[in-house]
Nucleic acid binder design. Structure first.
Lengths: 222, 222
DNA sequence: CCTACCGATCGGTAGG
DNA sequence: CCTACCGATCGGTAGG
């Protein structure tokens, strides 16, 4: 409490505020449609102050991306290891992934936007981040195929990418899609996961030869 | 050949050139990241000439959207009627839809971007454009359910939206996804539809109780 | 369809 | 972390 040093003060929470606001605005309006002015206004600082924390707009972009991806890298290993250890069933993996994304749809929207805006950098990021995990999951699927648990027709890698694609897209565009599901008799009990539920059913039905019943207490290793 | 009237000349092909270039640039870089200057440069006219054909940038946006959606409205009825008349099988519907999109991936990218940038206007557009078709298709699925051809667990509307979502997303982000399918041993024979093929298999497998064999000469009504 | 030009806003810098 | 300011570029207009 004595004095607050001007360099590296405890107020690096300004930095995280900037990241939070930028994530929200980038996700909602896109990178180019979001001005540094709009971000700094919402944080409550002047624009040059923002540029002190992130020297260019592009640095802010990669800061936002880094934060999102590192958050994933923190959660994904736990989910995947649980799924492949047989401790949880299959829907645990896809269900929790969806819960994680639904919890903050901005993550999904941001990812979609970056893939559209900068396909090549995202290719490299994905190859690095989820390349290893993909091999593990694909091998797991192949094992299921030799054990006659999983359809022989499944293309493991393509299946995984399709499901990721479907989950991310469904969460990111939930607002648009839900409107087409005739009115929204949703928010009565739960977060209205009609489209989310069908994604899970779709993923399971297209993978397993004998999809487990929808009961939660199934003893299947998946 | 006598004289070229200055108003309404035969050169409305400038207008279509503008639409074509704008579609490409909007799809590739997004609406906000694309300047009128960049568009008019590529067409080979001055910026005010562009603003003669489309009085504002927003008018250009809706012009581009209109063109894409009307193109769909021209193709979709043929596809859907063929699919529901039993003349073609199920994969005809989804396969041809994908061929139509793959033929010009900009259409898919543009649609994805618009859904992200302006969710509410797109909600209304979709409700208007494919609301009626959705009801027809959903009823068709329900009929298949009572006939025990289609899984009882399918949520018809949610299933349709998921497949649309999956097809559009897969085509729009094909470049990013294909890179993760280990190298690209693709362009040897065909347009390398490993991810596209899996989408079709996924859609079929999650819908039908007895998915038809992969042969093209199946006599199934689907 | 053009040249010339407008105010506004952009990302970023100087200097403290 | 601020005020003040920069050149560049934006969408759009005047006028022909």
């Amino acid at each position: 409490m004595q004095d607050t040093p001007k360099t590296e003060p405890e107020a690096n929470n300004v930095r995280s505020q900037i990241l939070a606001v930028a994530t929200e605005l980038f996700a909602a309006n896109g990178y180019d449609a979001t001005s540094l002015q709009a971000i700094s206004d919402r944080v409550g600082v002047a624009k040059p102050s923002l540029l002190y924390h992130f020297s260019t707009k592009d640095a802010l972009r990669s800061g936002v991306l880094d934060q999102v991806l590192s958050h994933w890298n923190e959660v994904l290993p736990r989910l995947l290891q649980a799924a492949t250890s047989g401790e949880y069933r299959f829907e645990s993996l896809i269900g929790e992934s969806m819960a994680f994304l639904t919890q903050d749809p901005d993550r999904a929207r941001l990812l979609l936007r970056e893939m559209l805006d900068r396909p090549q950098p995202m290719r490299e990021l994905f190859a690095q981040y989820l390349g290893p995990w993909m091999k593990i999951l694909a091998d797991y699927i192949r094992r299921g195929q030799t054990e006659q648990i999983i359809h022989a027709g499944v293309d493991p890698e393509a299946y995984i990418l399709s499901i990721i694609q479907l989950v991310v897209g469904t969460v990111a565009l939930k607002d648009v899609a839900d409107d087409l599901l005739g009115g929204q008799a949703c928010d009565e009990q739960q977060p209205c996961g009609r489209s989310l539920d069908e994604v899970i059913r779709l993923a399971r039905s297209a993978l397993f030869i004998h999809p487990a019943a929808a009961t939660t207490s199934s003893a299947s290793p998946f």
